[in-house]
Design a protein around this nucleic acid. Sequence first.
DNA 1: TTACTCTATCGTATTATTACGATGTATTAA
DNA 2: TTAATACATCGTAATAATACGATAGAGTAA
Lengths: 109, 109
Amino acid sequence: MGLAKTDLFTEQQNRVAELAKAFAHPARVAILQLLAQKKACICGDLVDELPLAQATVSQHLKELKRIGIIKGDIDPPRVCYCINEPVWEEARTVFGQVLDTFPLVQRCC
Amino acid sequence: MGLAKTDLFTEQQNRVAELAKAFAHPARVAILQLLAQKKACICGDLVDELPLAQATVSQHLKELKRIGIIKGDIDPPRVCYCINEPVWEEARTVFGQVLDTFPLVQRCC
DNA sequence: TTACTCTATCGTATTATTACGATGTATTAA
DNA sequence: TTAATACATCGTAATAATACGATAGAGTAA
């Protein structure tokens, strides 16, 4: 069953997992890096920059929008994509919370 | 095709994606939090703390070991699990690298 | 209107992931 | 030796994810 039992975990754990999924595929990392590195939004061009078919890129963009980490504003006939800053910050925060729980002290192994 | 085309992306992008997968399921987040919060390794007990069957927990542990973010040292008849510190630090670093590429300045949308 | 551009969605094929019962294996305890 | 413990692996079922060609839709330009 490819279905995670989200009701059995905390909201924070589910949110971390959701945000991590945004980065859990190299194509989505590439998309997020392209959007984050540009000073302005990208209106198109994403397909040209990626070694994937247009339909596949669109599917990844849809998933990233669902998670909330990017926005897509319509600027006909194009769609303007950019990082959704509050969610980007949320990712920074929650990844920090999880990764900083590990104390860098002597341990048993 | 559920197969990511890793050869088409950079090593860094693939590594970020791999490490993100460690956090991309609430059960694995829970496991990593349990391991990170303990002062000592956990020799068993993980199944008791999680709302999943033993086989499922073992499968998640195997995936986390494959990624490298945890270690499992044998202490018969148990196995001692703990965070693999260098990889944990690697995760901190690469997530930081990606998340810090976004400049907090005025943007177009 | 017609043609063109850009993006989303549909349909479909393939592989991955998640989950758990059952079983195997290795060590300890009796 | 036998039983119990702890964990891994197998087998299997169901759902998710990845990818792309084809098509649809919405807007622009001619």
